[in-house]
């Protein structure tokens, strides 16, 4: 199991030697747990870093923000930026590099293995703890240890882990500069796509009815888009209001913004938004599950993205985030690609 001191030492060392200009990691949250993302820039801040089952945020998002900040400030990066990355974070970084969003040498990846477990789903913990409010969480072998007012409570990890972690086959960051913890690639505590398979036992009519109901509830807060490291476009297809205006943008372009999707949160527009997002994530979504976690109205968005991921895997043998140099799903064509889906 990873000793937190190893993570802190690595980060401190990198910062002290000037090999990285900052390290993106997690620190304890304001009420202990859950942890929260932090960017540390000085060696002495390294002791703030934590690694526990609430480090569920996909930190690749902050690499995207860093790059956007640099681009807007017209600054060059200089030294690389360090990042502590779980398996899913690292896969996201690989996809971003595959899309040339930043170069490999711009990022120093401190990989951390989720080993035998993964991240918690807070609603599962809450149900198990029966009202007690935990202030800290820790890995403890097959269990998680929670500190509560009534003392330590231990829960079996499998009972309270997020679905995405139970189904995860790659809980180890394959792409890394340094890796901590044991490589348990291939382990999945539950069958991959198990939640999707369960959902698909319903009839087509039931599923359509289900999604209509779900999307009717969407308030278009765009939290799913904001938390997604793949949604890095300057102008999203859904809101023409944020049209990127550059010197070469013509007056006609400004006057003729296309409204593929209206901004109002009504069912038809919500459906189009979510469908468009799912399709734009095909071959790119690494199933970090953050969109589903942050949704304030609990729309099970993983089901949509998982569906695309499974199609890509079954039909084209494609796994997002597998290699930086590999072809991307939508841009590559092989003569022996199956065409059975064209009807």
């Amino acid at each position: 199991m990873i000793n937190i001191q190893d993570i802190r030492d690595t980060a401190r060392d990198l910062l002290a030697k000037g090999e990285v200009r900052a390290v993106i990691g997690w620190r304890a949250g304001s009420r202990g747990m859950p942890a929260e993302p932090v960017v540390i820039t000085a060696p002495e801040q390294a002791d703030e870093l934590v690694w526990d089952p609430t480090c569920y945020h996909n930190l690749a998002l902050h690499l995207v923000e860093d790059r956007k900040f640099l681009a807007h400030a017209r600054k060059t990066a200089g030294a690389p930026i360090g990042i502590i990355a779980k398996g899913c974070d690292a896969r996201a970084i690989v996809v971003l590099m595959q899309e040339n969003y930043f170069k490999r040498e711009d990022v120093y990846i401190i990989g951390v293995s989720c080993e035998g477990s993964g991240m918690i789903a807070e609603w599962k913990v809450a149900r198990q703890l029966d009202g007690a409010v935990p202030t800290a969480a820790a890995f403890a072998g097959d269990e998680f240890a929670f500190a509560t007012a009534a003392g330590e409570k231990r829960l079996p990890a499998r009972e309270v882990m997020a679905d995405r972690c139970l189904e995860c086959r790659n809980p180890f960051p394959k792409e890394h500069n340094v890796a901590l913890g044991e490589d348990k690639t291939g382990r999945a505590l539950e069958a991959p796509f198990a939640a999707l398979a369960r959902f698909e036992t319903r009839s087509e009519g039931e599923r359509w009815e289900f999604w209509q109901r779900q999307f009717d509830r969407c308030i278009r807060c765009f939290a799913c888009r904001s938390v997604c490291p793949m949604c890095y476009c300057e102008e999203c297809v859904v809101d023409s209001i944020n049209i990127a205006v550059a010197p070469e943008t013509t007056a006609e372009e400004k006057a003729n913004r296309i409204r593929w999707i209206e901004r109002s949160a009504v069912k038809s527009e919500n459906i189009t938004y979510h469908m468009t997002r799912a399709i734009h994530l095909a071959g790119r979504c690494v199933d970090c599950g953050e969109c589903e976690r942050v949704c304030p109205v609990n729309i099970p968005l993983r089901l949509l993205n998982n569906k695309m991921e499974r199609e890509a895997r079954e039909r084209f043998g494609y796994e997002p985030g597998a290699s930086i140099g590999g072809p991307s799903l939508v841009a590559s064509f092989r003569d022996d690609d199956p065409g059975a889906f064209i009807r």
């Binding site: 899309e99 040339n100 890095y232 300057e234 990127a244 550059a246 943008t249 991307s328 841009a331």
Partner: peptide
């Protein structure tokens, strides 16, 4: 190319069957 929108992801470069697209300064 609408340069303001292009992020240089290179997908079009791969997708082009005529090898007509290349990346210049990202």
């Amino acid at each position: 190319v609408r340069r303001s929108h292009c992020t240089g992801c290179e997908m079009c470069v791969t997708a082009c069957p005529y090898k007509a697209i290349r990346l210049e300064n990202g």
